[in-house]
Amino acid sequence: MKNTATDLNPFSLMMEPELVLQTMERSQQLRGLRRHKLRPLDKPLIPYTKEALAARAAFDAAIDAEDFEAHADSFLLN
């Protein structure tokens, strides 16, 4: 049987996934955590207006149209 020092060694835990699960099940700290459901943040809480979407599209188009290679030479130190 393995001793406690080996069970808690993070390197040995990486090599033995079964031991990780057993250690997690025995952990008082993990059992004491409050559990709550997290929801994805795919949708904004406040819907965007048409004007905001148009402004974002115009800004993106301006960035896409800008020629960064022409400006790159002015930033080079050589």
Rank of each mutant, 00 (worst) to 15 (best):
M24P: 03
K43G: 00
A70G: 06
F68Y: 12
R26A: 14
K50R: 11
A65F: 01
M1F: 00
F59C: 05
S27Y: 04
L53M: 15
L8K: 11
P10Y: 03
P40A: 06
L19E: 07
F68H: 03
Q28A: 13
L13Q: 14
F59V: 05
E69P: 00
T23H: 08
D7N: 12
R31T: 06
E51G: 10
L76V: 09
K50L: 11
H36W: 07
N3D: 14
R56I: 14
T4S: 00
R39T: 05
F11S: 11
A5I: 11
A57L: 11
F75Y: 15
A70Y: 04
H36L: 14
L8V: 12
K50A: 15
Q22G: 05
E16A: 10
L76C: 13
A61C: 01
A65Y: 04
V20D: 00
L19G: 03
L33E: 14
L33R: 13
K2A: 11
D60N: 02
M15S: 09
P10D: 01
T6S: 08
A54Q: 13
S74F: 14
R35F: 06
E51Q: 15
Y48F: 15
P17V: 09
R39F: 09
E69I: 07
F11N: 12
L53D: 12
N9F: 09
E69N: 06
L41P: 00
E51M: 10
L8E: 09
M15Q: 13
D67L: 04
R34Q: 02
T49G: 04
A61I: 01
P44C: 04
Y48E: 10
A55F: 08
F59K: 08
R26K: 13
D42G: 11
F11I: 12
Q29S: 12
A72D: 02
T23C: 05
A72T: 03
A58R: 12
A57C: 07
F75T: 10
R35W: 07
E69C: 03
A57S: 15
Y48D: 07
N9Q: 07
E16P: 01
E51A: 15
M14A: 12
Q29I: 15
R34K: 01
L38C: 00
Q29E: 13
K37W: 07
P47N: 02
R56G: 10
A62P: 00
E69Q: 07
R39K: 03
P47E: 08
L13C: 07
H36I: 04
E16N: 09
K37G: 02
L19K: 11
R34P: 00
K43V: 07
N78Y: 10
T4P: 00
S12A: 12
L21W: 04
Q22I: 05
E66C: 08
Q29L: 13
